[in-house]
Amino acid sequence: MAAWVSRLMIYDLDEGSAFPVLETEHEIAAPNWTPDGSALVVNGEGSLYWVELDAPELLEIDTGLCIKLNNDHGISPDGEVLYFSDHTFGGGAQIWRQDLGSDEDPVKVTQKRPSWYHGISPDGRMICYTAVREGLFGIYTSKPDGAQETCVIEGAHHYDGPDFSADGDWIWFNSDRTGASELWRVRPDGADLERMTEDGLVNWFPHPSPDGEHVVYLAYPEGTIGHPPGMHVALRLWSAKDKPVATLVELTGGQGTINVPSWSPDGRAFAYVEYAS
């Protein structure tokens, strides 16, 4: 995708439309919104960048010896800690944490690999991530320092994109455990597994809104394998109040568009990345 332009976008639910924040020839991906609403964090070619909304440009974040970050990252609810996945040291990705506003180096969270960060509970006491353990994909939780790693669900199929609901009572994720990738949710203790979509599309990366009203997710065409980049995809919205699922945007994207939680703090907008030739 080196010949493509990356366009960082914000979709406003009240307006029912999206607008561009930043366009760059660099390949950027996976926007997060900061808890204070002032900036976005994006991945770009192995690094992380701030994008201040009042003066949008790519401002590189110093992540110390970690220089091969993938697009799985996020910020704690109090805005004090940055989490990210990195594979600088080989052997598969591991999760790291870095205190923002400090000159200290990042600290490793997960000792086992591969582990890909995806979300943090609303109270900041638990992270959730995708991992492979003994050859099986699964959804895992641990304390923010990596203690008490717990398998929520695993199996012979793919499990990915975990993210907490606004009340912390559910973890949403995607899995192809019954065929094509669909959205599911489960309690953090592994109880009450529930399938949330069944529409023939290939659905990935569900992100519940902070107000508890919606879940935005990425939908690929029927028959898509994995979550490739550079495809015609849609961003769709599931609503908690028995409304039908709605397609909000059709775009060129996929991998990199909305891998991690990207809702604004008030739940009225979300960020994503689209690509253009």
Rank of each mutant, 00 (worst) to 15 (best):
R7P: 03
G179K: 03
L248R: 11
N174V: 05
V5D: 07
K68T: 13
I120F: 03
D189V: 04
L136C: 07
F89R: 07
D169R: 15
T34H: 14
N259A: 09
Y140P: 00
G138S: 11
E194G: 07
S262A: 11
E250I: 10
A29I: 00
C128L: 05
P114E: 05
R177L: 07
E213W: 10
E274H: 04
A147Q: 14
M126Q: 13
G92C: 10
D14S: 12
H87T: 13
R7I: 15
I258R: 05
L40G: 02
A246S: 12
L22G: 04
G161P: 00
H158Y: 10
S239I: 00
P31D: 07
G46H: 02
Q94H: 11
Y140V: 01
P77K: 01
T34R: 15
S76F: 07
S121K: 01
G179E: 07
G200V: 04
I139K: 01
S85R: 07
E182M: 10
L136M: 10
Y117G: 05
P265K: 07
E60M: 13
P162Q: 00
S277M: 06
A234G: 12
D167T: 04
W204A: 11
E194Y: 09
E149I: 11
E52F: 15
S165N: 05
A180H: 06
L53Y: 08
R185D: 14
L201S: 12
F84I: 14
I67P: 00
G44N: 04
G200Y: 01
D78E: 11
Y272M: 02
M1S: 13
E80Y: 03
A55L: 01
F270S: 08
L58C: 04
A29F: 06
D99L: 10
G74R: 06
M196F: 02
D242L: 12
E213T: 09
E80I: 08
W238M: 03
V249A: 05
D105A: 01
R187Q: 07
Y272T: 01
V215R: 06
W204R: 10
G161H: 04
G16P: 10
R97F: 09
L82D: 02
A93R: 11
L193I: 15
G190S: 08
V42E: 14
H26P: 00
H207I: 06
W184E: 05
A191M: 12
E149V: 14
E154W: 08
W263E: 08
V233D: 01
H26C: 06
F164N: 06
R125K: 14
V233Q: 04
E80H: 10
G135A: 08
I10E: 05
A3T: 14
D99Y: 12
D266C: 11
L183E: 04
G212Q: 13
E57V: 08
D12L: 03
D12A: 03
D192K: 08
D189I: 01
L69E: 09
Y159W: 05
F19L: 04
F84M: 12
E182H: 06
M1D: 09
V152H: 09
Y275H: 12
D14K: 10
I153S: 00
C151A: 05
A191K: 14
P221L: 08
D169F: 14
V216E: 03
N32F: 02
V216M: 01
P228W: 00
